[in-house]
Amino acid sequence: MLNKLLFVFLLGFLLLSLKDSQISLAKSWPEPIQATSKYASKAGFALGRALFYDPLLSADSSVSCASCHLPYTAFAHVDHPTSHGIADRIGKRNAPGLFNLAWRQNFHWDGGVMHLNSQALNPLTHPDEMGETIEHILLKLKRHQHYPQLFKKVYKQKQIETWMLLDALQQFTISLISKDSFYDKVSRQHASFSEQQQKGFVLFEQHCNSCHTAPLFFSNRFESNGIRIDSTDLGRFNITALEADKGKFRVPTLRNISHSFPYMHDGRYKSLKEVMAHYGQQLQLNDKQQKDLIAFLKTLTDTTFLMNPQFQYHTLNQKP
C-alpha cells in the first residue's frame, strides 16, 4: 500500500514537473515589444476584426485588409507576388504574414514604421493598396449603421477619431499569435520529430537560426541574403539613407512558411524548393539536405492558428 502511495506521489510530482517545464517553455518567448492597447477588450478585438474584414475602408469599397492578409494563408497573400490593391493595382512588395506582431520592433519590409498602431496608415492610404483617406474613412464609419455604436462601446465617446480606428485594428492584429505548430509540440515534449525533420532541424540550427531565431523564427534585423536586388527598391536604405543598408530587408518569420508563399520581399520565389535552391547554392547544401530542411520548416505550420475561428470573418452583429 505504502509502495503504491509512493508511486502515485512520484508520478504526480513527475507530471507537475513536466507541467512546470511546459510553462517555462512558454515563458521562454521574449517580452513583447509592442504595447497592448489600454482599451484592450473583447469588444475592441471584435471591432478591430470587423474593420479588418471590411472593404468599406478602401476608396472604392472593393478590398479589405483581409484581401491581402487571409487567415488560411497565415494572413499573407498568395495570389500574386506582391500586394493587390483597388482597381487591380499591384504594389511593389509581397504582403507578409500577420502574426506574432507584438514581438516586432518595426514594420514593413524596410522597417519604416515603428508602431503597430500606426502601421495600418500605409495600406489604408497607399494609392496601390486601399487608396483611401483617413478623413473619408472616418466619415464612412460615422455614417454607418453599426460602427458608431461599436466604437462607443469600446472607447466611451461618441466621436470616431483616427487613433480609435488604428487602435481597434491593432487590438485585432496584436492578438494574432501563432505558437502551436508541430515544432512547438515537440518543444513541449508532446511529439517528436521524424528522422528527416530531425536532420532538417540540425541543419537549421547550423545555418539559419542566427537570423531566423527560435522561438519566433525571425529577428528584428535587416539583412541582404544574396538575392539580386532591383535598383527601384533598395529596402532599408530608403529609410536610413545609409550605404550599408542598400538592398537589406527585414528578416521575415519562418513560422507558417509553408502557407505564406510566395517568398522574399518581392515574392520572386513561388515555392520553398525555389528558396532552398537559392540558399543551397550559398550554403552548399545538397538536394537531400535541402529536402531535410524543408521537412523541418513544415513543422512550423500552426494549423490551430490558421483555422482559428476567432480570427476569421464575422458579421458585425456576431458575438466574439
Binding site: V113, L121, I134, W163, D167, I239
Partner: peptide, 17 residues
C-alpha cells in the same frame, strides 16, 4: 499615434516611415 495637431488625418504624418 496622437490626436489634435498631431492626428494623422492632418496629412503631416508619414505612413511609410
Amino acid at each position: 499615434v496622437f490626436t489634435g495637431a498631431l492626428d494623422p488625418i492632418n496629412g503631416m504624418y508619414w505612413a511609410w516611415n
